[in-house]
Write a protein that binds this DNA or RNA. Structure first.
Lengths: 110, 110
DNA sequence: GAGATAGTCAACCCTTTGGTTGAGTATCGA
DNA sequence: TCGATACTCAACCAAAGGGTTGACTATCTC
């Protein structure tokens, strides 16, 4: 399994912000321009551009030019890193919860 | 499915910090006192106590008194919230990746 | 009871973050 | 070619984050 330690922190910090999570979720439906992403958000275009920059540095999003627009897309490489991490954590939580279940069952049996 | 929106942001912010992720991972092995958690970390006890406070407010950790010590444990309620969220995201990433796979396959077929 | 131990709390400090505005660039449409 | 559109960039600012220290409380040990 590949380790993504070098980027893990950047990904976590990128996803810590609600606005950026919103952007990621919206990009999961369709690729969108910076302006489209900014439209429903109550902040300047520059602010949105900065948010996208952070997602880009974390490897979650890529931006390409199309005329005078910039089209944003979810980045498969970043997605893989996030998926691997989340799966690791799901396993981790599940094993904890299983252990808790067993512990509770033992209590009941007494 | 239960929604954890009210706590989601706190959980994300709590897990955005590497020190706190470290604490959570260590607590997954065993419950530990604040002092034990602080021991390998290069910072004051007060700082560690603050980190634990943030994890506590996010619902990920509980602290109880045992003599003059405070014992920290992973909180099942918080764990469930995180697990549900991560599972939702794993599904989300997987569907994206499946879509990408299909798109790439179609390209190959041409 | 006296001192050591374990931790919390509040005040403070510096850095980072998340926003703003204003100016600049590239592209589109007339 | 000229003006609007779609951004980006740099400078700036206020608030939040992550750490410190010093004083305090509670408990253990002698």
């Amino acid at each position: 399994m590949v380790e993504y330690n070098e980027s893990k922190d950047a990904i976590f910090r990128a996803l810590a912000d609600g606005t950026r999570r919103d952007i990621v979720e919206r990009l999961s439906a369709n690729e969108q321009t910076v302006g489209m992403l900014a439209e429903p958000l109550d902040m300047s275009l520059a602010a949105v551009s900065k948010h996208i920059g952070i997602l880009e540095e974390a490897g979650l999003v890529t931006r390409r030019k199309r005329g005078r627009e910039r089209v944003c897309t979810l980045d498969p490489a970043g997605l893989l890193a996030v998926r691997d991490w989340t799966e690791r954590y799901v396993e981790f939580w599940n094993s904890r919860l299983d252990a808790l279940d067993r512990a509770l069952k033992e209590d009941d049996d007494e």
